[in-house]
Amino acid sequence: MKILVPIKRVADPDNANKLKISSDAKVDTTGLEWKPNPFDEYAVETALRLTENGANTKARVGEVVVVMFGPKEAESTLRAALATGADRAIRIDANDADLDGDVVAQGLKAIVDKEKPDLVLLGKQTVDSDSNQVAQLVAEYLGWPQATFAATIRSEGDKALHVGREVDGGTLHLKVTLPAVVSVDLRIVAPKSVRSAHTAEGHAYPDGVRFAALMAIMAAKKKPLVEEKLSDLVPGATRKIEYTSFALPPARAAGIKVKSVQELVQKLKAEAKVL
């Protein structure tokens, strides 16, 4: 199975308080520490599990291509994905300021047309803008079936996937014919969430995203990484979404003590207007 995994780097969520917004609603990214979007890391891990036999030999049965939109210095995020086991990488040269979910989805369609993967596998959303759009948009542009918020995936060879989607109140099980677009949720990296057609019955992975071994980090720089131009893939791409302003939610006012149940009910009616 050939899997394309789009990944994004995001400002380190642990240092989100360092993020600065200018008066004209531009995000100032200078000096920020970058991390791979955690949901995309889960997607890479899922792709690796779907293209190996799960046994200690980790024999590969397919190819994982990681793709990213971003400037040259973002390549270290792609190299990190190569170090964990992805086979090759594509960087679409672009500035963060020129991108929105729609531009990215159009660019991905162009890459899919060239690469012809069996599966586009990505995080359900990025933890910076939290838009949760790209998987759905790219599926629409491709005219492919989609399954979002995957918590489990079982592969039936290169023909179809059984996907367990996390939905309110439970798990919705879908069978998706390939090629398809699947976005993953947090629980996809639980030990038994992903089974390729070659995974031994009962095999359990370590919980979470695998570590990159030192030698794999050193080998990653020899793996292929090609650059594409956004303007070649999506001529005349323009953002559909512009940010006009950012504002913090209003600070929470201090609570008060009520003297009686009557007063509470009265306030819930008159002030909170919830009764």
Binding site: R79, A80, A83, L214, I217, K221
Partner: peptide
């Protein structure tokens, strides 16, 4: 065989 990226990646992963 060592570049700045490998040094940074090694420290972060370790």
């Amino acid at each position: 065989n060592w570049g700045e990226d490998e040094v940074r990646a090694s420290l972060a992963e370790c």
